[in-house]
């Protein structure tokens, strides 16, 4: 297995929004979910998750509330707010465009640009 790659700067927010959109999760759950949906290819600096979560909550994209975890521990759960859902949609589309453009650019050959 290839070693996981660190997330690109600026993409952590998008990944968090995506992970939370799938199900309501606590911080550690979000970390696991990202690892899972990226097939283990993306690794996140664990602590860096929390400033990002709080920033998104402060911006009103996430809603956090205290609940009980599967092993009966007190944990803070995050879910997507309507504006978070909209942001996820917009940013996903934006990401698709970047990827398409980048791929096209990187696939270009010397003959192609003649």
């Amino acid at each position: 297995m290839e070693p996981p790659i660190p997330v690109l700067p600026g993409t952590l927010d998008l990944l968090i929004l995506k992970a939370v959109s799938l199900s309501q999760e606590h911080g550690y759950g979000i970390l696991l979910r990202i690892e899972q949906i990226s097939g283990g290819a993306l690794s996140i600096e664990q602590g860096a998750l929390y400033p990002a979560l709080h920033r998104l909550e402060h911006q009103g994209l996430l809603a956090g509330e205290w609940g009980v975890s599967e092993n009966n521990r007190k944990a803070r759960f995050y879910s997507l707010t309507p504006s978070g859902r909209k942001r996820l949609k917009d940013d996903s589309a934006g990401w698709e465009r970047i990827v398409t453009a980048m791929s096209a650019a990187l696939r270009a050959t010397a003959e192609g640009i003649e």
Partner: peptide
């Protein structure tokens, strides 16, 4: 304190 609690939970989950 609530933030500490949240991060503590994370660390313990990971340790488990």
């Amino acid at each position: 304190s609530s933030l500490d609690e949240e991060m503590q939970f994370h660390i313990e989950q990971h340790a488990e």
